[in-house]
Simulated assay, not measured.
Amino acid sequence: MKIVLFGASGNIGRPATEELLRRGHTVTAVTRAGHLDGLRHQALTVTAGDVTDAAAVAGLAASHDAVLSAVGPRIGRENDRATIVGAARALIDGLRRADVTRLVTIGGAGSLRTPTGARVMDDPHFPALWKANAEAQAEALDLYRGTTGLEWTYVSPAAHIGPGERRGAYRTGGDTLLTDDAGASEISYADYAIALADTIESGTAIRRRITVAY
Rank of each mutant, 00 (worst) to 15 (best):
24 G>C: 11
91 L>C: 02
177 L>T: 04
101 T>K: 04
25 H>T: 01
28 T>M: 08
155 V>W: 10
131 K>P: 07
184 A>V: 04
48 A>Y: 10
200 I>H: 01
147 T>D: 02
122 D>C: 11
11 N>P: 00
122 D>G: 04
165 E>Q: 11
152 W>V: 07
172 T>Y: 05
143 L>R: 02
160 H>F: 13
6 F>W: 12
156 S>E: 10
122 D>M: 13
63 S>E: 14
26 T>C: 05
185 S>P: 05
38 G>Y: 11
37 D>S: 07
102 R>L: 06
214 Y>W: 10
203 G>P: 08
163 P>T: 14
204 T>G: 05
51 V>Y: 12
98 A>S: 03
127 P>S: 15
91 L>E: 06
168 G>S: 06
42 Q>E: 15
45 T>G: 05
22 R>Q: 12
127 P>Y: 11
28 T>S: 06
102 R>S: 06
152 W>D: 04
155 V>I: 13
53 D>H: 13
13 G>K: 07
100 V>S: 00
40 R>A: 14
130 W>T: 12
169 A>S: 14
105 T>Y: 02
207 R>M: 10
85 V>I: 07
83 T>Q: 11
172 T>I: 14
126 F>L: 11
104 V>K: 00
175 D>R: 12
82 A>E: 13
116 T>H: 03
12 I>N: 06
134 A>Y: 15
172 T>E: 12
47 T>K: 05
142 D>V: 02
112 L>D: 06
174 G>T: 13
149 G>Y: 03
63 S>G: 06
107 G>F: 11
194 I>M: 15
24 G>E: 05
165 E>P: 02
36 L>S: 03
161 I>E: 12
71 V>Y: 14
6 F>H: 01
87 A>D: 08
80 D>N: 15
